[in-house]
Write a protein that binds this DNA or RNA. Structure first.
Lengths: 128, 128
DNA sequence: ATTATTAGTATATTTATTGATACTATAGCA
DNA sequence: TGCTATAGTATCAATAAATATACTAATAAT
């Protein structure tokens, strides 16, 4: 889940995992990646389209996250040599294999967020 | 995915999500949570047991993550008033609902980590 | 001539996460 | 008497993630 631009560090770190759950989290974890992948499930998107969809993400963060996903082979970056620039991002075949996982993240969230909010507020009150 | 000890902040932040994928990530994301939940899938565990299983986690981090999972209603904390102290952590019924998701994280990692490592090293070489 | 647009990069700064180390209480054991 | 074990807490330092802001090039529209 590093957002460094030192790809060597990422490369050497992934195989030190003791549990493969960690490896998956390294690929889709962090604040933005799984949401970016979610929006790419229904087809290619341009940079600013993704920026609008991921409410509040900065250009810098979006660029960093997209580069990491690209490095991992999850997304493809297609550059059109036009002015103004046009770059399209899409899931690779490998990235498509994340579909069931991302959809499960989505549906768990839809079904259980209310309950989590409720639990958190109870816990907070108990502490008082 | 905050690890602050300001529970109000967590409470107020979760419902600002534009996509429910974000909400799920907030519950199971971060470096340790999903792995902790994974180890709890096969039954209750004591604090130091979890510490040994989560290779390299510090006591402080383990405590913080467990408290957040408890606040969200994912795990139950059972304190035995003994000396030396004994505390057992287990999944709640609500936490059990994460089982399919965690198992999918596990299997995706098992099936695809090799490929990710390969992709990362190719990408790194391409940059040179 | 000015302004808007796109997909970024560069730089600096703030905030969050993670880690290292030392410390606690009390019972049991040698 | 001193050592071990457990489940932490407290404090401080280091690292990583996230944000804010300004900047770029080239064209097309106003």
């Amino acid at each position: 889940m590093k957002s460094s631009n030192n790809n060597d560090a990422r490369y050497f770190s992934i195989d030190k995992y003791s549990c493969s759950v960690e490896a998956t989290i390294d690929v889709i974890g962090g604040k933005w990646k799984s949401v970016i992948i979610y929006y790419l499930l229904d087809g290619k998107k341009r940079f600013n389209e993704l920026k609008r969809l991921n409410n509040g993400i900065t250009q810098r963060m979006l660029t960093l996250q997209l580069r990491e996903l690209e490095a991992d082979g999850i997304i493809h970056r297609e550059v059109y040599r036009e002015v103004p620039p046009k770059v399209e991002y899409s899931l690779t075949e490998f990235g498509q294999e994340l579909r069931p996982l991302i959809l499960m993240l989505k549906s768990w969230g839809m079904n259980n967020t209310e309950k989590v909010i409720e639990n958190r507020s109870k816990y907070t009150n108990k502490l008082k």
